[in-house]
Design a protein around this nucleic acid. Structure first.
Lengths: 213, 213
DNA sequence: CTTTTCTATCTTGTATGGTAGACGCTCGTT
DNA sequence: AACGAGCGTCTACCATACAAGATAGAAAAG
């Protein structure tokens, strides 16, 4: 049941129901979920290790503000790994890689046309995860996923401004380069695709400066 | 004081004082360190999140066996990031990069000549961390450090077989390529340097099969 | 002798009480 | 009026007690 608290709190944080800077306490959350303080405490520890909370001994626990530097370095990590993935994939593209990825893009177009940004986000994530799976490093994506929570908070603030058409176009470019075995082209396309998150961050900082440190 | 337990247990695990597969319990560790069960429990949670322990509900807690697949993927992550680091560094080598790294290599040679493998290991780690710092992504190295614990357990099993001379030679090759601005050469040197860990893993699995899953 | 069932014991999980530290407010002093 | 000291209150932290599940071994039945 402590895990339930973890999930609930994490959702509240990434959906900005609990906003950066908000102060919470073990007793507070315990009463809100009808459990004891102990499971809440353990949930706090888990979330603090994931960088979502900041436990201040003897004082209080606050929802961590988003660190622009941290987001920047998370982006660096993601770009490093995804570039390596795409290079290896373009170097040895499996037989069914093009088909599997193409199928995903079709679904993304459907979601985009239906203006279902939530589903598009899920499919976008699945696209990148599939790239990792195709070369047998799905665990690596799991790592990215952990560090992506910070960026997801940013993304949630700018929902609706989803330029899904552009993203789909970039996905197509990537897949084309992969199936053609064009390593350098695939790498460049991936870097361009990921670079768009940079402007997203700048815009969000300007729009919500109090959520950042 | 819970953090003290975390540190002590982590040291015991990476130094193989607590071996993979060993069963421990909260009460056991609590009595051993003269504290209550609660701090120990929180320490277990932290170490479980770091992949060193496996909490089996209502049964027991075991020191996680080393997953060859996990080590392999950790190596993939590390190689991805370090290659990206070295490429950027070779592309824009700072003025003092060569001097700083050269100084570290000198110390490594001293440690190697003195057969101080413990100090050499520290200096080796510092070398790679410095590479990250030189392009402003020290946080990225911190990530590698977390995932490196698994490999450190392997490394501890094969202490003494440290081919430090070879490592130093490879470090020199890397630094030379960086100062020369040779991006491709630096990348190749780094990949070769990291690839040696692969054979280390195979040898260790053969020598201690019961420590792996 | 084999198999099955039940119980004793060990484990983690949860709840609650007490402790020490840090902040903020009030009251006293200058 | 302005500043400082003291006290109340809130916090995370630790210790203890209780509860529930899972296993191992003994005992009983076949």
């Amino acid at each position: 049941m402590a895990l339930r608290v973890v999930g609930a709190l994490r959702d509240d944080i990434v959906t900005m129901t609990l906003r950066p800077g908000d102060v919470i306490s073990e007793s507070d959350i315990a009463g809100r979920y009808g459990v004891s303080r102990q499971p809440v405490r353990e949930a706090f520890i888990r979330l603090a290790q994931q960088g979502l909370l900041m436990i201040r001994p003897k004082r209080a626990t606050v929802v961590k503000k988003i660190s622009p530097e941290g987001v920047r370095q998370s982006r660096f990590i993601r770009e490093s790994i995804e570039v390596e993935i795409i290079r290896r994939l373009a170097g040895h593209p499996g037989a069914d890689a093009g088909a599997v990825l193409g199928e995903l893009i079709v679904e993304q177009e459907a979601a985009s046309n239906a203006n279902d940004s939530r589903r598009f986000h899920t499919l976008d994530e699945l696209f990148h995860r599939t790239l990792a799976r195709l070369i047998g490093v799905e665990y690596a994506w799991q790592l990215i996923d952990d560090h992506k929570m910070q960026l997801d908070r940013v993304r949630y603030l700018t929902l609706g401004s989803s330029s899904s058409k552009l993203a789909i176009s970039e996905h197509k470019t990537i897949v084309a380069a992969v199936t053609a075995g064009d390593v350098a082209g695939a790498e460049a396309a991936m870097r361009a695709h990921l670079a768009r998150a940079e402007v997203l961050l700048s815009q969000t900082i300007a729009a919500h400066p109090d959520y950042f440190e």
